[in-house]
Amino acid sequence: MNDTTNILAVGVGGQGILLATDILAEVALAEGLDVKKSEIHGMAQRGGIVTSHVSFGRKVYSPLIRRGGAHLVLAFEEMEALRAFAFLNAGGKMIVNTQRIIPPVVSSGLAEYPSNIMSRLKATSRTIVDMDALKMAIELGNPRLVSTILLGGLSLFLNFDQKAWEEKIKEGVPRRTAALNVDAFREGRRLLNGYRIH
């Protein structure tokens, strides 16, 4: 049980979080590991919070990561990064896509979007890595590439073969966007190259 790696992905419905964690889970499976992946479908595509839990290792029991139990948090959105902070474990690392998705309660002027999120996160003793995946996705021609760019960043923190990643990305995304998504994945890796851990 102690060899289990727990990865939490958080963001907002429509950002491609479930597709990204499906690919992550398939890579772990291809590496011969036991895997569990859990999230809740339902109303999420209508602007709600999406959280996806992926755990892999020799034998995985729980499909849910506890607070303080995540080795890595992949946050697709700033405020959701802040919300998910409590899930990081003591040596936990967080990759944050510096994108803000404004909830209706803010856009209608009834609340304010939290300020200084990145500096608050970085003031903690955790490793916080930011990526502007949206900017890069737009440069590559499609905002929907955010999720594979972030996977590229995530891949630097995991000991999986790059070929396995790219194969599972090709299988997981719509066929006509396969090459573009592989490019996006490589760009994501390049963007975070300085943080390489393994």
Binding site: G47, F85, A90, V105, V106, A111, P114, L121
Partner: peptide, 18 residues
Amino acid sequence: EIQGVSIDTKDLIPRTST
């Protein structure tokens, strides 16, 4: 396993589906 670090999260806003 839970070694919490304090961070201010009081201004988090809920996201409701619509």
